[in-house]
Simulated assay, not measured.
Amino acid sequence: MNSPLTAKQITDYQRDGYVIVPALFSREEIDKLFEVARSDAAISDNSYDVRDESGKRSKLALWFTPGDDIYGLLTRSERMVGAVDALLGGSAPVCHFHSKLMQKEPFVGGAWEWHQDYGYWYKNEFLFPDQMASVMVAITEATRENGCLQVIRGSHKMGRVEHGKTGEQVGASIRYVSLALDVMDLVYVELKPGDALFFHSNLLHRSDANVSPVSRWSLISCYNRQSNKPFNEASSSCITPLEVVPDGSLLAASAAGMAKGADFLTKEGDVTLREE
C-alpha cells in the first residue's frame, strides 16, 4: 500500500511518538467535510458533553464502523490507511477501532486531562500498543487560544502509565506526567485545517479549554492491526480489515452525513475508555 510519509517522517514518529503531516487533506476537502458535519443530524443527535474539572464541556460523537459517508471516506482513504500502515508495528491488515468528531466550542469548550489512549484501551484488553495509533485531522485551525493538543515528545517510550478517574474523564498519574515533563519537551500542536497529527497510543497528551471566540473541530480516527485482537471489546470493527478507497473519493462522492443506524457510542457506553 502506498504511503504519503517520507522515511524521515517515519523515523520522527518512532523517536517522538508523533508526526505532523501538513495539508494531508486539501482545503476543498476539509471545507466539504465541515459543511456536512455542521448540519449532520445524526452527529448532532449522537453528540454528548464531557466535562472537565472546572465544569467546562467538550462535545463529541463517536462511532465504530466507517461507512460510505464523508467521514468514512476520509478514514478509509488510501493516504490515511497507507500512512498508518507505515507507522504501525506488525504486518497484518489495518483496521478501524473508532472515530470521533470533536467539537470544542468558543469559551465553553473544556480541557482534557493528561492521558494516553492506551491508558483507556488497555482496559479493552488490547495487548500490543505499538499496533495502535490515532490520527487527528484538523477541521478548523487549532491554536493555543482555542485549546490545541499538547504532547510530551518521546513519552510513548515510557510504556503505559496508570490512569484514574478525574471528574468525567480518566487521566494519567500526575506524578509520572511531572517526571516526564522534567526530562521531555512539552509541544503545543498547532494545526491548520487539513493538517494531520499521527500519534502513538502511549503518547501522553492533553488540551486546554477553549478561551477564544473560535471553534476547534477535529476528526480523530483510531486504528489497530487485525492481529492485535482485544479480549474485552464488543465492536468487531477493530479486527475487520478496512476497505480502502481512492484519495479522490471524498471530493468525487455526493456530500453525505452519517447514515441512520450507525454504531455510535452513547455516553452510557463508557466514554472514559474512548476519549481524545
Rank of each mutant, 00 (worst) to 15 (best):
V151L: 06
L5W: 01
G164T: 09
E233C: 14
A180P: 02
F64Q: 12
E35Y: 11
F107N: 03
V21D: 15
V211C: 12
E141I: 03
T272A: 11
E162V: 03
W217M: 14
V36I: 13
R57A: 14
K267Y: 09
F126C: 15
S134V: 02
R153D: 03
S254I: 04
A37K: 12
A86V: 09
A255R: 02
K100A: 04
K123E: 12
K56M: 09
G248D: 12
A23N: 11
G154Q: 07
L197D: 07
G167M: 06
W112D: 10
A111C: 00
V177I: 05
V271H: 14
A111S: 03
G82K: 07
A256Q: 07
T166V: 15
I220G: 00
E28C: 04
V189Q: 10
D117G: 12
N224D: 15
V94E: 04
A253C: 09
D130I: 09
G89F: 08
V183Y: 10
N146H: 03
P106R: 09
R27S: 13
R225W: 05
S212T: 07
T143K: 03
A142R: 02
G55M: 12
S44Y: 08
S207R: 01
M132D: 08
H115Q: 08
L33K: 06
G110H: 00
H200M: 04
R225F: 01
S178E: 14
D270H: 05
A86I: 05
S26N: 11
Q116L: 00
L242K: 00
R216V: 08
P4F: 06
D52A: 04
K229F: 15
R38A: 15
V137F: 09
L251F: 12
N124V: 13
A111E: 03
H163A: 13
W112P: 01
E190L: 09
W112R: 11
S227E: 10
V187C: 08
V170K: 11
R153Y: 01
E105M: 05
C95G: 09
S173I: 01
Q169L: 10
V271D: 15
G269R: 07
C238G: 10
G82W: 07
H115P: 00
T143Q: 09
Y18L: 10
A142C: 03
S201P: 05
I43L: 15
V214M: 03
I139C: 07
F198G: 11
A253H: 06
G194D: 06
D247A: 12
F128K: 00
R153S: 04
I220L: 13
L250Y: 00
K260W: 14
R206S: 14
L186I: 01
E275F: 09
L60T: 05
Q103D: 11
R206H: 00
G171D: 06
T266V: 13
V19N: 08
A42T: 10
